[in-house]
Amino acid sequence: MNLKDRVDPSRAAVIVVDVQNDFCHPEGSWGRSGKNMDFINEMIPALQKFVTAARRQNVPIIFIQTTHSDADSTSAWLSRKSQSSGDPNQTCVEGTWGCGFYGVLPEEGDLVVRKHRYSAFVGTNLAQILNALGRDSILATGVATNVCVESTVRDGLNRDFHILLVSDCTATTSDAAQKSTEENIRNAFGWVDSSKVVCSIWDSLTVVK
C-alpha cells in the first residue's frame, strides 16, 4: 500500500494517544517530576491543525485516554518502573484533573477509548471500533512516542492494520527517543511521515460532498 492509499480518508482513522494533562501540562505529573516537556508542548499546535484537517476530510478521530485505578493496577503493573525515580503510579488516576485531555479535545462525533496499559489495543474494543468503521489504516499521533504510541503501533500491525506514524504530531521527552521510535517503525512496523505531507495529499483530493 502506498502513502496515498494509507491516508485515504475513506479507509484511515486518526488515533490520538494520551494527550492528557499528566503527560503534557507543565503542572501534570510528568512536568512536576522534572521531565523535559518542551518537545511535547512544541508538538501540540501541529496536532491541533492535523486533527482539524482530518475532521474536514471526515476522517474519524479516536482519542485514547489512559486511566488508572485500584481495579486495574496489578502488582506487576505497579512495580514496572521500580528502578526509576519518582512514583509512576500517580499518573492519570481515574477521575483526576491529570487524566483530562490537554490541548486538543474530543468533539461531537469523535470517539474516546479508555485504556489501562501502554497499548491502546490491550483490554479495549479499539480493533472492533476500527473494523466497524471500515478503517484498516491507522494514522498514529500523541504521546509518548516511544512508549504508548509505539506500543499501540506494534499491536496495530499485529492485528493487520496499516500504520502511519505522523512524526510531527507525536512527541516524547527526548529527541533521541523520538528518532529511535521513528526508526523502529520505519524499519519494521509501518510508515513515518509528517502531517504536512498527509494534509497535502488530502488537499489534492476532490472531496465529493
Rank of each mutant, 00 (worst) to 15 (best):
M1T: 14
N2A: 05
N2I: 04
L3M: 10
L3Y: 02
D5T: 12
V7P: 00
P9Y: 04
R11M: 08
V14C: 11
V16P: 08
V17A: 05
V17I: 14
D18M: 02
D22R: 05
D22C: 06
F23C: 03
C24M: 04
P26Y: 01
E27K: 14
S29N: 13
W30R: 03
W30P: 04
G34V: 04
M37Y: 00
M37E: 01
F39M: 15
I40Y: 02
P45E: 06
L47K: 04
L47A: 09
A53W: 02
A53R: 08
A53K: 12
R56E: 12
R56G: 04
I61K: 00
I64C: 05
I64S: 03
Q65C: 02
T67E: 15
A71N: 11
D72T: 15
S73T: 15
S75P: 15
S79F: 04
R80W: 04
K81G: 14
G86I: 11
G86K: 07
P88W: 08
W97A: 08
W97L: 01
G98M: 01
C99M: 15
G103P: 08
V104I: 13
L105D: 07
E107C: 10
G109D: 09
G109W: 06
K115P: 00
H116P: 04
H116N: 12
R117T: 12
R117F: 05
A120C: 10
F121E: 04
V122L: 14
N125Q: 15
N125R: 13
N125K: 14
I129E: 11
N131L: 13
G134T: 09
S137K: 10
S137N: 06
S137E: 04
I138L: 05
L139V: 00
L139N: 03
T141V: 07
V143A: 02
A144F: 13
A144P: 14
T145H: 03
T145I: 03
T145W: 06
N146K: 09
N146V: 10
C148H: 01
C148I: 02
V149P: 01
S151H: 05
T152N: 01
V153D: 05
V153T: 02
D155N: 09
D155V: 00
G156H: 05
L157R: 13
D160S: 11
F161M: 03
L164W: 03
L165N: 10
L165Y: 07
V166T: 00
C169Q: 06
D175Y: 09
A177K: 09
T181C: 05
R186L: 07
A188D: 08
F189E: 00
F189N: 00
W191D: 13
D193Q: 09
D193M: 07
S195E: 01
K196T: 14
V198S: 03
C199L: 12
C199R: 13
S200L: 06
I201W: 02
I201G: 04
I201F: 00
S204E: 07
L205F: 07
V208Q: 13
V208G: 08
